[in-house]
Design a protein around this nucleic acid. Structure first.
Lengths: 188, 188
DNA sequence: CTAACCATTTGATGTAAGTCAAATAATAAA
DNA sequence: TTTATTATTTGACTTACATCAAATGGTTAG
């Protein structure tokens, strides 16, 4: 997973200026206020959101309860995956948790650009592969680790998370109740 | 997820004969005997395995215990994803559960072919997207559904599974103990 | 056919984590 | 500052599921 990130970063570093210019041309930087939504349920995800600086979360509603599926920090890319790929209404919300700078890239502009700049198509595949590996790893955690271990891994990967993100969201992301997470933290 | 499959099938149906010929040229059909391994831990996954007819499973060892991550039936494609993408040693095993016909495609031949036949690159992306959506769905199940619901969904999606696959593998795939799965089945 | 082996079921008991409820602690608003 | 609101902790109790152990059912091999 990390080596895939290395691969992507190296690939971007080697991109020709022409390709980079196009990428820049189809992207817009915008600042969102804490609590703002990048995407709401039932909307089509027509943009990808690169978190330049800030934090965000993705979640859906499961009989009234919010289930957080992903937390975003600096340099992460936020999309509602199937909504983006298939350009169909999203089941998920994407919400900014602090004042956040976003660089958003239009879906259809990117699709067009891919045809003229094959390197963008390669990049697209590599990023999708990375997402799949990330999902595999998360699934592995749900499959084999208990709540305490999942929490340990999370703070190991993102030590700053606790300062920045309310416990409810972290608990939901880990698939445990708020109370259980509180008790897990009390122990250690 | 289903619509993504439709998209892929339609795309394949519209492929020109030239591209199809190449695909055929780099693929080999082979028959494996029940219990044979398509891939073992620590090997690099240098082929993708299209299950023409039969059943298979993917699993890894987690302190001695086998954790089944995927079950394959007719027309499914089996790979150890990160091993395949990064051409690094696999953590997973892929094993055939019945006598099974496999059409295997060489990784590097496919990479080369993609450069000459851009449609193969598009296909590659679409299939990776499909896998990511499948993973998202599976994660959703672990995140929100209890063992009983996960089992119900599985037999709904694959009614024939119970006849063909030993309970241990199904239980492991669902993330429950063998005994609990047996009890779940006793009820309904 | 019978024995040996593997797959599944059933029983008894333990435990991680959920739920409901209330008490603090921290933050924002007046 | 004081109050109002939200976030986190703590307690008592319940529940889904795991584990260990043993019994039963099915398959394969001698």
């Amino acid at each position: 997973m990390i080596s895939q990130l290395d691969k992507i970063n190296e690939f971007i570093a080697r991109l020709d200026t022409e390709t980079l210019t196009v990428l820049n041309r189809i992207s817009v930087e915008k600042i969102f206020k804490k609590g703002d939504f990048l995407l709401r349920q039932d909307e089509v995800c027509k943009k990808s959101f690169w978190v330049v600086k800030g934090t965000a979360r993705k979640y859906y509603l499961n009989d009234g309860k919010e289930i957080t599926t992903e937390l975003y920090f600096d340099n992460d890319i936020a999309i509602s995956f199937d909504s983006y790929c298939l350009q169909k209404p999203s089941r998920e919300f994407i919400q900014v948790l602090t004042d956040t700078t976003i660089s958003q890239t239009d879906f259809s502009s990117f699709q067009t650009a891919k045809q003229q700049f094959p390197k963008l198509a390669i990049l697209d595949l590599m990023m999708t592969e990375y997402y799949a590996m990330w999902l595999e790893d998360r699934l592995f955690q749900f499959h084999t680790m208990d709540a305490t271990s999942r929490y340990s891994k999370l703070i190991q990967d993102h030590p700053y998370i606790v300062q920045n993100i309310p416990l409810t969201f972290i608990a939901s992301y880990l698939g445990v109740s708020l109370e259980t997470l509180s008790r897990i933290r009390a122990k250690k």
